[in-house]
């Protein structure tokens, strides 16, 4: 029970951290000052969510585990984030589309999770849902803007769909610890989120005048169980470098 709860919580934390980390790479490099600030806000929200989940997982784990030992001292194979979150930022189209896909999923996930039998998870979900509601709105608007903007922006968002679509299936394909989590009542059945998610994607894509890709296309999986893309290793090399070079220090 506890093992599954820890794995499940770390999975939620990892996805939030890695996407927050990716978004933070935009800080100082955004297309316009107002949006630089906006994407950075989303990054801060996600890192905040990750910290809440990690702190809870650390408390459950004991043995002097902290949010930082979880984030900084595990290797790529132990990370349980969805593949979608670790993909490179690409251009603005890739970034906002990745955010849209993930926020639409997180929105449904947290809506359910706030009724979790585990009061901690429920509380974190409830708090995070407010943030995600805004992320979803913000990213939806950008997808619409780019889809129905100029011919260049349309082409770029089409390219982004092409690149990202095959990473969306994993969101709804539960790992073992998710299945256990659902069975025991503290987790959300990810499979059941898929339909609502697709409806949301279709609605926004329609407004954006974008074609909806084949929902039965072949999907990449593995992130939730530690089989990642090559990108994650580089993220961790960057992120963990100080903790690894100077082990056991306070910062």
């Amino acid at each position: 029970m506890k093992k599954d709860l820890i794995s499940y919580t770390i999975h939620l934390a990892d996805s939030a951290l890695i996407l927050g980390h990716r978004n933070s790479e935009w800080c100082g490099h955004g297309p316009v000052l107002e949006q630089d600030i906006a994407i950075t806000n989303i990054s801060l929200d996600l890192i905040g969510q990750a910290r809440n989940f990690y702190q809870y997982a650390a408390q459950l784990t004991g043995n002097n585990t902290t949010e930082d030992t979880l984030a900084y001292l595990r290797d790529a194979r132990e990370f349980k984030n969805c593949l979608l979150t670790e993909l490179p930022n690409g251009d603005w189209a890739v970034t906002v589309l990745r955010q849209f896909f993930f926020s639409a999923y997180q929105y449904l996930l947290y809506q359910q999770l706030q009724h979790s039998s585990d009061t901690q998870l429920a509380a974190i979900a409830e708090k995070s849902l407010k943030e995600v509601t805004y992320h979803l709105r913000w990213s939806s608007e950008w997808v619409i803007r780019l889809g129905d903007g100029t011919s260049e922006s349309r082409q770029r968002i089409l390219n982004a769909i092409e690149d990202l679509w095959m990473f969306t299936g994993e969101l709804f394909k539960p790992a073992d610890y998710e299945i256990e989590a659902t069975a025991k009542g503290f987790g959300v059945n990810a499979e059941l989120l898929k339909n609502d998610w697709l409806q949301n994607i279709k609605a926004i894509f329609e407004e954006a005048t974008l074609p909806v890709p084949d929902e039965n296309a072949w999907m990449q999986t593995g992130g939730k169980t530690g089989s990642h893309t090559e990108h994650l290793g580089f993220i961790l090399a960057d992120m963990q470098f100080l903790q690894r070079t100077y082990p056991g220090c306070e910062w």
Binding site: I37, T40, R51, Y54, A71, L242
Partner: peptide, 25 residues
Amino acid sequence: ITRAPSLKRKAILIAKAQDEAGHGL
């Protein structure tokens, strides 16, 4: 930002750099 040595420091540094964007604005 991507190399900040703890999650707390990372969040602080992001918030600070973001403040600077606001100040520029």
